[in-house]
Simulated scan of single mutants.
Amino acid sequence: MSTLETLQSTAPATDKLAGRVAFVTGGTRGIGAAIAHSLANQGASVAVGYSRNPASAEHFVADLRRATEPHGAAASAHRGNVGSAADCRSTIAEVIETHGRLDILVNNAGITMDCTVAEMTEEQWSTVLAVNLSGAFFLSQAALAHMVERGTGRIVNVSSVVGETGNIGQANYAASKSGLFGLTKTLAKEAAYQVAKSGKRSDDSIGITVNTVTPGLIGTEMTAAIPDKVMARLTAQIPVGRVGSPEEIARVVHFLAADASSYITGQVWSVNGGMDM
């Protein structure tokens, strides 16, 4: 077993998130699935969002429960369209009703509709922005209201290195992922202001923080479809010389979700092997 495989398979289980409830959008596949398992491994009850295939979602949750049950935690799946403001609000309400609270929101759901600027349609532009950026806004808006009432919470947005560098054929995706940077910093400032205004801020409180993680080239089902020659060219551009794993993103997310990160807010965490620095 390689050093990387050892790191991926031996992440220690702890109770640092015991008693917390997390909601991960797009949480049944790829990076989202790794984040869900990582949070569960730290003791959180985990709700995952999905848009299609209820049978697959329930199968994933059954597996996730094996990670949550030793901590006395729970797992659930919630279907909705992140591109719909109404669905965003109703899904947050459903998670809170199911688990009694919401401590951690991970805005991970995202789509691509690649096309050059010259050929991109209005639908391709609007749909990607609606899911990747507007969805994160409406989910955060609903979650933040609940978190401010309680005086604590964590919001973590999952952006992309493409939001930092741009990419040919991905104007819509790059714009949506870059937009998360401004959304993160504004939400972080407003969350801190609202907690202070509510009188629930104190020196020993973990407060409400909002941060973004930007993955680079990560080994998922999506990247598995990239031809070998193209993958070799892309990997050659990464200083550390390899593709990242979903678990490497997940560990950063679960750190930002923990109490120990309470002095970190409004920040963009690049996890990309040095692709952009």
Rank of each mutant, 00 (worst) to 15 (best):
R29T: 03
T68D: 06
A22H: 07
Y50Q: 00
K200V: 01
M1F: 06
R89M: 07
T6R: 04
I104P: 14
R150P: 00
V243K: 14
A236Y: 01
G151V: 01
K16A: 08
W269I: 14
G100R: 10
V271A: 08
D103P: 11
G199E: 13
L217S: 11
A232Y: 00
T214Q: 04
A33D: 12
G100D: 08
I249P: 10
S176F: 13
V230F: 00
A11H: 04
A77S: 08
G179S: 09
P12V: 05
V213R: 11
N167S: 15
A62D: 14
T121E: 03
N81G: 07
K177I: 09
I92E: 04
S245K: 11
V148K: 15
Q194E: 15
R65H: 10
A11Y: 13
T98W: 06
I249H: 04
K197E: 15
L180G: 01
R52Q: 09
V148P: 02
T121W: 01
M275N: 02
S245E: 08
S38M: 07
M113P: 12
A73S: 13
V148W: 09
S202W: 13
N132C: 10
S134T: 07
L129S: 01
A13N: 07
V252M: 14
G244A: 07
S176V: 11
M120R: 08
G83V: 03
Y173Q: 12
Y263R: 11
M222Q: 15
H146V: 11
A11G: 03
A257W: 08
A130F: 05
E94M: 06
G241D: 09
G179C: 11
Q124Y: 00
N157S: 13
G80H: 13
V131S: 04
W125I: 00
G72D: 00
S84M: 13
A236N: 09
G110R: 02
L102W: 08
I206Q: 12
I226F: 08
A13D: 05
L144P: 08
I111E: 03
S160T: 09
P54Q: 04
L105Y: 05
T121G: 06
A258D: 14
S261W: 01
V61F: 08
Q141L: 14
D228I: 04
E119S: 13
R79N: 03
A73C: 09
G43Y: 09
T152N: 12
K177V: 11
E221H: 14
A34C: 14
L4Q: 03
Q267H: 08
K189H: 10
M147E: 02
Q267P: 06
V271L: 09
T212Q: 10
S262H: 09
T265H: 01
S262M: 05
I35N: 01
G163Y: 05
T68M: 04
M113D: 15
H254K: 13
I31C: 01
A236K: 14
E248S: 09
H99F: 14
I155Y: 05
T6A: 06
N272P: 03
A130S: 10
S9F: 09
K177R: 07
F137K: 13
N53V: 09
I238C: 02
I104V: 14
S261V: 04
I168S: 13
D63W: 05
T116F: 14
V128C: 00
G182D: 04
S178D: 06
L64R: 13
T112N: 15
